[in-house]
Simulated assay, not measured.
Amino acid sequence: MAVSKLITPKDLNKILQGNTAGIRLLDCTYQVGVKPDPVEFRQKYYGKFEELIKIQSPQKKTFLQSHIPTARHFDLDLAMYPGLYQRFAVYEPEVFQQYAQLIGVHRDDQIILYSRGPFGGMLFAAKSYWLFKTYGHKELVLVNGGFDEWTKEGLETETLTEEPAYEKGTFLARDFRHRNVTFEELTEKDADGKDLLERAAEYNLLDSRIRAQFDNDQDTGLNAFVVPGSHLPNSANVPANEFIGSNGKLLPKAFLKAKLENAGFDPEKKTITLCNTGMQASLLNLVLDEVYPNSPLRLYNGSLKELEIRDPGRICGGIKPVGKP
């Protein structure tokens, strides 16, 4: 029987009251900001975590103000970097490893992740979950409902004036970046002259954005001057937000499975998930891991924002006639 990827705040609290050796609790609080200039970042800051961790940010301020006791801040702006085509590009394993060690993560730790904000407070924790999987770490759990659920339960929080220096961890990053599909893989032609996107029927090609964006009924976040439509042809819309219940927690597994089945998901097929920047798709990947842990699953980390730059004409599904709503 597969072990759940989720833990309740009450169960986490019980763990924290006991022996926490081998447990590393990471607060993945994040606020999406303007993408830094990728060339300047590469020259000044790439992999320089001792400098980056000293920079003040809204997410660090929020973390310091209130977080679950013993948690350490895991900042996506440090764990990933701005690439030429991707808002959140993936470091080489030996580089990411330095950041994980800097915040005291050990190679055999049971990593417990939580965040706050969108999608039941689980969006950024889910991105962090998939990132750690990209580096081969297996012992990963998310707090169902995130920090908001923790505070709803009336559990203790902690405040810091500054983030302390931690004893260096022993985290070992392995290269599992094949869990992310690249633009080059998606567009490479086979012997019949077709690329992967043209063979989408062979895959579960899942767009995890909200329905209104997929259907072109609201701002898609894409540049309408270069992108003709709102989604990839042959992709299925499986919105990640619809797996979060009205109580702010991930729906029970039976409901998750039913929603996937209703969306036409085939667990026997290989799956590729996407959104705009790989964030919502990571939450969908968490759902898929929870329900079908053995189903082959990959994330298009660059997602539609990368295609917007490199091949915008491919985003041609959902085109609406001029003058019609």
Rank of each mutant, 00 (worst) to 15 (best):
G22S: 08
N144W: 10
L76E: 02
N13M: 00
K249S: 06
F171N: 02
V3A: 14
A201W: 09
G317S: 03
L304N: 11
D77G: 09
E242A: 00
L205P: 01
E184P: 00
E149M: 10
A125D: 10
A236C: 15
T157H: 12
A79Q: 00
G229P: 06
C316R: 13
K324R: 08
K269P: 12
H178V: 06
E261P: 07
R310K: 14
S235N: 08
L102Y: 04
L286G: 10
E163S: 08
E50Y: 00
F171V: 10
K10W: 05
R211W: 07
E167F: 05
F171I: 04
Q86A: 10
V3P: 01
N13K: 15
T70D: 12
N301W: 02
G313N: 14
K54G: 06
T62G: 07
F96S: 11
Y300F: 15
G117E: 05
L283F: 09
N285A: 12
N294L: 08
A200T: 10
R211V: 06
L84W: 07
R174F: 15
K48L: 09
D27I: 11
Y129T: 09
L197P: 03
K305H: 15
F63T: 13
I15V: 14
V141M: 07
N204D: 10
L222S: 02
F171A: 11
Q98G: 01
A236H: 05
K5N: 10
V90I: 15
K305F: 09
V143W: 13
T157D: 02
K249P: 11
K189H: 03
R310M: 05
I103L: 15
D215E: 09
M279E: 05
K133N: 06
G154A: 15
G302P: 07
P36D: 00
G221H: 14
Y166W: 14
Q17P: 02
L232M: 07
N223F: 09
L260C: 07
E51H: 13
Y45M: 12
S230V: 02
W130G: 03
L274W: 01
L123E: 13
K60A: 05
L78Y: 08
A254C: 00
E40V: 14
K10I: 12
Y300M: 00
K305D: 03
P239C: 09
N13A: 14
F183P: 06
K60V: 14
E185C: 01
Y114E: 01
L297G: 07
L140I: 00
E188I: 08
Q97V: 13
G121Y: 03
V32M: 11
G120P: 09
M1D: 15
I103W: 00
W150K: 10
N247G: 04
E153V: 01
A126K: 04
E139L: 03
F147D: 05
E188A: 14
Y292K: 08
D289G: 12
G136H: 09
I244V: 15
A236D: 14
E163L: 11
I15Q: 13
A191E: 15
L256A: 04
K44Y: 11
D109Q: 13
N241F: 09
